[in-house]
């Protein structure tokens, strides 16, 4: 058990960073999310896994309202998401997101990618924003790429830039939507290292949709397994990997670890 895990377990009345209460979502007639209930404590690190099409990405995309849920409640830092534009803009500065395909802005340099939101959303002076940007670029170990364009960087570097870009807004929550699944195998570890470092610093609430089970074992406080739009199993990593309860989880684990 890591230190952070012990501390969250000891303070069970800690505030929730995110609460999903009976969340439901449909794409047309297709019921993608069925009664999702999830409480995420501040500073908690959660890994969501499951087969493709299980709705795991949709869950975290609903949290910052990139997708709209149709039933139930989403509460972020004590505030229920209503879809109000002003509220969303405010909440999104507290919730950073990293995408599978990085989604860096190709027309801006790395530095400009990082300073865009601090300058235009937080109204930070340019010098200050650049200072913060360089600090995070150093943290993800690519300060020397600051004046290049995203197209000149490798996939792994781009994803690290994307993480730094989110961190520049000093978010309370970070959402990761399959951050390593579009990467070449030899670049996965450089991104995971950055994420592990971030997780080990503590304080940051992290929700990570990923198939990297090694990452889950190392840093997750809880692992959530989803299938067919439902949360099937939820447990500590040790229990989840060594002693999966549901048949569906056992099958999934045997498939991804089996080869």
């Amino acid at each position: 058990m890591t230190d952070a895990q012990t501390s969250t377990n000891n303070n069970s009345d800690e505030k929730y960073a995110i609460q999903l209460i009976n969340m439901n979502k449909w794409y047309g007639d297709f019921h993608v999310l069925k009664d999702i209930n999830l409480n995420v404590k501040e500073g908690e690190r959660i890994v969501i896994c499951g087969p493709s099409g299980s709705g795991k990405s949709t869950v975290i995309r609903c949290i910052n309202h990139l997708e709209e849920h149709q039933k139930g409640q989403i509460i972020v830092s004590g505030e229920e998401i209503t879809g109000d534009v002003k509220q969303l803009e405010r909440l999104r500065t507290d919730v950073g997101m990293c995408f599978q395909h990085f989604n860096l802005f190709p027309h801006l340099t790395i530095l400009d990618n990082l300073t865009l939101a601090p300058i235009w959303v937080k109204k930070m002076p340019k010098k200050e924003a650049e200072g913060i940007a360089m600090k995070y670029l150093e943290r993800v170990k690519i300060p020397d790429q600051a004046n290049k364009y995203p197209g000149q960087l490798s996939g792994g570097q781009q994803q690290r830039v994307a993480i730094a870009r989110s961190l520049c807004m000093n978010p309370k929550v970070m959402l990761f939507d399959e951050p390593t699944s579009a990467l070449d195998p030899e670049m996965i570890s450089e991104v995971l290292d950055v994420m592990i470092e971030l997780a080990n610093e503590g304080g940051m609430t992290m929700l990570c949709v990923t198939h990297e089970m090694g990452f889950a074992k190392k840093v997750a406080d809880r692992v959530i397994f989803m299938d067919a739009g439902q949360i099937i199993e939820e447990n500590t990593p040790e229990e989840f990997f060594n002693n999966p309860k549901s048949e569906r989880t056992q099958l999934f684990l045997s498939q991804i670890i089996g080869h």
Partner: peptide, 27 residues
């Protein structure tokens, strides 16, 4: 412009007009 650019811009808290003029329209 790929959907991801719109999503990344709004996920960073940029308003509609800011994401259009800073991210989408230049591209």
């Amino acid at each position: 412009i790929p959907k991801g650019q719109y999503e990344a811009a709004s996920a960073m808290g940029l308003s509609y007009w800011k994401s259009m003029f800073l991210v989408i329209l230049p591209q």
